[in-house]
Amino acid sequence: MTDRTYIDIHVLHSVPPSNLNRDDAGSPKQAVYGGVRRARVSSQAWKRATRVAFTDELHLPAEKLGTRTKRISSLLARRIAARTTLDDAAAARLGTALLAQDLNIKAGKKETETAYLLFFGINQLDAIIDLVAERAEELAALADDALTKAVADLPVREQLTSGHPIDVALFGRMVADIASLNVDAATQVAHAISTHPVEIEFDYYTAVDDQKTAEEDAGAAMIGTVEFTSATLYRFATLGVHQLTDNLGGDTNAALDATRAFLTAFVRSMPTGHQNTFAHRTLPSLVSFVVRDDQPVNLVSAFEKPVRSRGTGIAEESARRLAKELTRAASSWGVTPLTVASVYEPDSGQDTDTLTAAFGTPHNLDEAIACVLQTVRDRLQEPA
């Protein structure tokens, strides 16, 4: 395979009044950029939304995905019990012995939890069970010392360092005190920020007690406020296909499948903060996939000077700004894309040529992803 292949994902996404991602005080997250206050959605929030979309929208099978939990012991025990004739207590004892010997994962405050979240695949747990499934009853019958000795040499750690699920391969894994379990992330996701200044607003709401009569109490049974903002967000992520392929054990077909899943899920996902209050789910106004062999290029500098609405709309002006910045990056800095495939509506104004020159002919999402995957497939098949 080639040394480096990056897919940059640029998204313009307008959302109505909403509170997608709140801080510790309940306010929509913000950032100062270009000297003005912007709406912000953290990278963690959108990565979580992307992972949820793998299941809820793409319906990927559980065996291809991971889970992040402190409850690896109880999860392993339940799967041991389901695979063998052991009762719950014996399965828990065997599972604890397996995890303790080769991994030495620190225990948490609760007996059934670890000290930190672990990110792993269900298929990896099953691979651990495969090591003992045929002699589970024999092992469970041993005394504690004998059980410890019997499982001491089993390659439990090896099962968690290979056969990674899609989301672990994409987003990586860090376990500070067990460095051998670390997985370098194949993706980087930027904090989304608005292309324009924003102000935080307050929604004052009341709730009426349906069972009270007007004679009893004419006032509201509950009052409160919720903060919100609305914004056209610039979202950016980059995917290192070379790292993803390495994380998936060199399986190029698996890497292509994971790439398709990530591109689709990242574009279509949405954080769910206060979603029942605001029904804020929208689709992007522009998506541009840019394949590179040199370096990722975040184009947020297009919005360092904040966009102002002058009758054309913020999203439309933001698209023109983004197009000019993509073109400038190539002409001024020599970072020329291998492929650009985009989803957008052509500008109805005088800058149609600007958009087309930067983003290419408009596609629908499936067509754009197919174009990107063809470039990636060709590069993966090149001799090293």
Rank of each mutant, 00 (worst) to 15 (best):
N123Q: 06
R292P: 02
T277H: 10
V291E: 00
V11M: 10
G95E: 03
A25W: 07
E113N: 00
V15H: 03
A140R: 09
T354C: 08
R83Q: 12
E325T: 13
G121H: 02
V175S: 04
T356Q: 00
A136S: 13
A330V: 11
R281L: 14
E227M: 06
F119W: 07
H59G: 00
L248V: 12
I314D: 03
T206A: 11
R4Q: 15
P383A: 01
H10V: 06
L299C: 06
A152K: 13
Y344H: 00
A261G: 07
V15Y: 07
Y116C: 00
G249I: 15
A319F: 03
T312A: 12
L283K: 10
L58N: 01
P28V: 05
T336R: 02
V32W: 03
W333G: 10
S27A: 10
E227L: 03
R379M: 05
N276P: 05
A91E: 08
A220F: 14
I128T: 04
L131S: 04
A127G: 14
R37E: 15
V168T: 15
T112R: 00
R328M: 06
I80A: 09
S14Q: 15
D353Y: 07
A82N: 10
V343Q: 01
R93A: 00
S301F: 04
A62L: 06
E227A: 12
T375A: 05
E345N: 04
W333I: 07
T96M: 01
S285D: 05
Q211G: 12
A214W: 13
A91F: 10
S43G: 15
L60F: 01
T2E: 14
